[in-house]
Nucleic acid binder design. Structure first.
Length: 211
DNA sequence: CAGTCGATCTGCT
DNA sequence: GCAGATCGACTGA
């Protein structure tokens, strides 16, 4: 390896970093346990110009981390009960990042099972962004944390995986502009069993008031 | 397997 | 007030 730190390899728009992050390993090691996940699915968000991004409407208290330096973890709380985690990419201010959508538990299987009681199959432990965050024990306290320092370790592969093994398609859960095939910004390892099942983003139908 | 729905925080209107 | 980068439980085939 050259002297180029892995952090600098993240200082590009998320769509360019995506193939590099697939196959990488993220480890979280604290007093509640040590779990490592091999990333198999990510979703790119491109900052102020991306209607599907949290950064689209500018910087807020929640998304400040996205506007910072690459190589940090952006953790947000959503739907009243779930955490999701992004790897911040690009240069400071660009607010581009990769949502970690799915992975394979490669270390700390027992700890991951303890954190995620419901699934009957280990393949479901980190299948989906909120599940992955829960299996790794990620929460708002880790928002802004350095991915290359304790308690986190991000290990990038020496070289990106073979492009033939990578598939891409529309993002999940992003409705309207930015949710169609116009933006195929979801990337996954083809045929990997831990990749989350695709669900088309559908606008919710409001309940009728008069029941 | 596909469709539906509740849980309930955060930011914007 | 309301929609959202979701999940798990439930329903009907």
């Amino acid at each position: 390896m050259t002297a180029t730190p892995d952090r600098n390899r993240l200082a590009l728009p998320a769509t360019q970093v995506a193939p590099l992050l697939l196959g990488s390993t993220l480890t979280h090691d604290d007093d509640t346990g040590r779990v490592a996940v091999r990333i198999t699915e990510v979703e790119a968000y491109l900052g102020a110009d991306d209607p599907g991004s949290h950064a689209f409407r500018g910087q807020t208290a929640r998304n400040t981390t996205m506007f910072g330096n690459p190589g940090h973890l952006y953790v947000y709380f959503t739907y009243g009960m779930h955490y999701c985690a992004n790897v911040v990419c690009g240069e400071a201010g660009q607010a581009t990042g990769l949502l970690l959508r799915a992975g394979e538990i490669v270390e700390g299987l027992d700890v991951a099972r303890e954190r995620r009681k419901s699934p009957r199959h280990d393949v479901d432990l980190a299948r989906g962004p909120a599940r992955l965050a829960q299996a790794l024990g990620l929460n708002r306290k880790l928002d802004g944390a350095d991915l290359f320092a304790a308690p986190l370790t991000l290990a990038l592969p020496a070289a990106p995986v073979d492009p033939d093994l990578v598939s891409s398609g529309p993002r999940v859960g992003v409705a309207g502009v930015g949710g169609g095939s116009e933006y195929p910004w979801r990337y996954w390892l083809t045929d990997d069993p831990t990749v989350s099942r695709y669900r088309a983003a559908k606008p919710r139908i409001p309940r009728t008031v008069n029941g």
